[in-house]
């Protein structure tokens, strides 16, 4: 599902070079990448998401070498195959919950299935907030909406950047369990990068940077 080889990245010529260990992940396998701040965790995630281009090395996702894809192709590939979960901001503020999900499907060029949206929202305990503005949601609700937005288009790979770091223990547990459950439902691989050791026990594969 995910394979990387000899990945390196440099922001500017003079900056220190990040070197990343090779990753090899089978379909539906999950991975936790641990590391302190500033070590290049987010950089690795962005490389995997095709948001950044590596200085050297190759990335295979779903048997496609994403480092060779052109901008537009890459946008499409990312939109259809990858779901991203962020730490704090998750959705477009001018749209409500439902509109965000619809916009997400529109951008991924996937059909809008109202029943599927409702089912997902009810699983994430968000159905009653379907028409709520983003500003009106609590942090926990926002995090759950972030998960919904990352899985609604049935991606092959879910990438989560510090999804639990700003949450209390109770919400942390809830969010990581939901992420794993949703990944299983969509038959996707899940890669979480974090410095949050609370969620270590949920993963069999762990890499420490």
């Amino acid at each position: 599902m995910v394979q990387t080889r000899n990945l390196t990245f440099q922001y500017k010529k003079k900056d220190a070079m990040f070197r990343f260990p090779d990753i090899s992940l089978e379909k539906q396998e999950h991975l936790l990448i641990l590391g302190a701040s500033g070590i290049g965790k987010t950089t690795l995630l962005h490389l995997l998401a095709g948001v950044l281009q590596p200085s050297s090395g190759i990335i295979f996702i779903n048997e496609e070498d994403v480092t060779t894809l052109h901008q537009r192709k890459l946008d499409q590939f990312r939109g259809q195959n990858i779901g991203l979960v962020f730490q704090k901001k998750h959705a477009i503020t001018s749209l409500n919950v439902l509109e965000n999900l619809q916009a997400r499907l529109y951008c991924s060029k996937k059909p809008v299935n109202q029943n599927k949206i409702d089912a997902l929202l009810s699983q994430l305990d968000l159905l009653q907030h379907k028409t709520s503005k983003i500003n009106a949601l609590s942090e926990g609700q926002l995090q759950r909406l972030g998960i919904a937005l990352a899985v609604i288009h049935q991606p092959q790979l879910i990438l989560a950047d510090e999804p639990t770091s700003s949450l209390d223990d109770k919400n942390c547990k809830k969010v990581i369990e939901l992420l794993i459950k949703q990944a299983a439902q969509t038959e996707a691989s899940l890669i979480v990068i974090t410095h949050d050791h609370r969620i270590k026990s949920y993963f069999q594969n762990t890499i420490t940077l």
Binding site: Q71, H90, I92, C107, S108
Partner: peptide, 10 residues
């Protein structure tokens, strides 16, 4: 940026 991660083009 988020729209771009959704697959929207520039």
């Amino acid at each position: 940026a988020i729209l771009r991660t959704y697959g929207a083009s520039n």
